[in-house]
Amino acid sequence: MNPRPDPNELTAPDDGIARGGVLLDVKNVSLSFGGVKAITDISLNVLKGEIRAIIGPNGAGKTSMLNVINGFYTPQEGTIIFRGKERRSMKPHQAVGQGIARTFQNVALFKGMSTLDNIMAGRSVRMKRNIGWQMLWHGPALREEIEHREKVEEIIDFLEIQHIRRTPVGKLPYGLQKRVELGRALAMEPTLLLLDEPMAGMNLEEKEDMSRFIIDVNQQRGTTIALIEHDMGVVMDLSDRVVVLDYGKKIADGPPDEVKNNQNVIDAYLGVPH
């Protein structure tokens, strides 16, 4: 229905931060739930244009970190500076307004809606026509709908999910659901894309596809990506820099090769008691 989009048209809008500049700076953040310390005094940054991996054993606090970044949790201590603006707390929909989109560890799609509608929902905040125009449908509301539909179809082509456009996502296999969820996040045209275990539960072929999509999003659209992943091979291939968490603390941070050979990391993954 649509020719393959020209990648040059898909680059994220310029926000004044040069490639390689600090896009997100998390400083001394601590988060606890009652007595449980999920994150203890962690600082990390994400540079514009990079793929940043967050790894660590189960329960290390990785998901909590993403939740802090996109405003879902408010940390008890620390600050977050995104695109040069500092904040302690904000609502998730405000994070969206600032250009943060994410996917979830357990797919969080709108199950009763089609693939197309799920991805279109990702553009809700960009659509402005009010209920009066929506009631009439023809005219401005339809023009807006078509304009956004074209963007969404570019994403559908990019992710190669044309065949499931009309399928209710609840009926899709898990691997495809993960892909649709990525599509919904892309529809938001984020500056920073947070992916929580995008390849969990996938077979090798699906993982390869997903890796390719992540790299393409990063390179063609210039989207900065922070991802959580368990598959070390995938992490080492994809990411520019890796931060390692264990029991809510940062134990290593640096390029993949360096992190791979770090003794603390090896111990954490081998389960050496500490």
Binding site: A108, G112, M113, A121, S124
Partner: peptide, 17 residues
């Protein structure tokens, strides 16, 4: 779509803005 999104998963709806 916004209504259905809230119906199907309100947390995700909030996180798409």
């Amino acid at each position: 779509r916004m209504w259905k999104a809230v119906r199907d998963m309100d947390i995700a709806a909030e996180l798409v803005g």
